[in-house]
């Protein structure tokens, strides 16, 4: 059965607190203060994806020439027309006969890459493939999108043997729904401002359909799952508001919280669920089941995984997400604006 043989992630060093952004914009302080990750001026989705990939390769303990496919998902590539995953491939020393693909469209770009890669390996067309997702996001100053827009990357290596987690199945749900978007050339994400409508019809319904449909296919219920790593909408200042979908499926905060990084790294787009997966794998035990649930623009992918005993054996090679918190540095609003390009710098 196709599964994951290694995981990695990368989160930039810098953070800014929500309270700092609110203060700069003359808003009242938050009820709960959260942080988000801010990339340095010399970082982008390419550099972050490269670091996450190298980390996953180290965890898997394989040589880069064995990777036959590199599939990347992002919505913030610096180019509309130029493949960037080839730069990642050159960085790790992948072979020229590897196949590369780039996925985009929404925060679901990461799981799109994952679904394509797992099918590639299941079909036998390749023995080992890389899935990497990265995003570096920005919202208009003073808006909810700005409060949460973060940056990060995560990578998974897939194969059929010696897996640390088996992929049991996947299911998707699709609808035409506009809740968050960004036109070409626009540096900022935009949203409708109608949280309740977006949450009920854009977010909750596709997730319930995708996850519910998957559990039915696999003959499982919510009781079979220990963890649910779910894309969060920027849901405002109270995280518990975003879990209507989960509650409808029989999940609750204990399932969701271990995979949450919205309050530490922010909305990391296509990489969000994979960063959460890295975080969960560190605490999960063999045979624990976890559900990855991605969401973007009215669509959701649900993927069911089960941790294997091999995961424990590879634990020492896993780079802990906690390290990204240990080495973090806080910024003030002016420094943040310079790094995000909102105000100019000399360089």
């Amino acid at each position: 059965m196709v599964g994951i043989i290694g995981v990695g992630a990368y989160v930039p060093t810098y953070r800014i607190k929500l309270s700092e952004i609110l203060k700069a914009n003359n808003f009242p302080p938050p009820l709960i203060d959260v942080e988000k990750a801010v990339p340095n001026l010399d970082e982008d989705v390419v550099t972050m994806a490269a670091e996450a990939t190298a980390s996953a390769i180290k965890h898997a303990g394989i040589s880069p020439e064995k990777i036959e496919a590199l599939y990347m998902g992002t919505t913030s590539s610096p180019y509309t027309d130029r493949t960037v995953v080839t730069t990642v491939a050159a960085h790790i020393g992948a072979s020229n006969s590897a196949n590369v693909m780039e996925f985009g469209g929404s925060a679901r770009a990461g799981t799109s890459a994952l679904l394509a890669c797992m099918d590639l390996i299941s079909s036998g067309r390749a023995k080992c493939g890389l899935v990497v997702a990265a995003d570096s996001l920005l919202g208009p100053p003073g808006t909810l999108l700005e409060f949460y827009s973060g940056a990060g990357a995560a990578a998974l290596l897939l194969a059929k043997e010696n897996t640390i987690a088996e992929i049991e199945g996947a299911n998707s749900s699709t609808s035409e729904f506009a809740d968050k978007w960004r036109r070409c050339g626009d540096p900022y994400m935009r949203d409708s401002g109608d949280d309740r409508f977006a949450r009920e019809y854009g977010y909750t319904k596709p997730i319930v359909d995708a996850v519910g449909g998957l559990m039915k296919k696999l003959g499982k219920t919510s009781k079979d799952y220990k963890f649910v790593i779910q894309q969060m909408l920027p849901i405002g200042l109270d995280p518990s508001k975003g879990i209507d979908a989960s509650k409808k499926l029989g999940f609750d905060m204990p399932h969701l919280m271990p995979g949450v990084t919205l309050n530490t790294f922010g909305e990391t787009g296509a990489s969000y669920v994979f960063i959460g997966l890295n975080q969960v794998i560190e605490q999960a035990k063999p045979n624990d089941r976890m559900m990855i649930v991605s969401y973007g623009g009215g669509c959701s992918d649900a993927i069911s995984l089960r941790l294997t005993p091999v995961a424990d054996a590879r634990k020492t090679a896993l780079h802990s997400i906690k390290d990204f918190q240990k080495s973090k540095e806080l910024l003030n609003y002016v420094q943040y604006c310079k790094l995000k390009g909102i105000i100019g710098t000399s360089a």
Binding site: N40, D42, D44, V46, T47, A50, E51, P78, H91, A347
Partner: peptide, 15 residues
């Protein structure tokens, strides 16, 4: 030693 962006020329990014 970390992999980072090195500015651009003609719209093409360097690393």
């Amino acid at each position: 030693l970390v992999f980072r962006r090195f500015g651009e020329a003609d719209g093409l990014l360097r690393y």
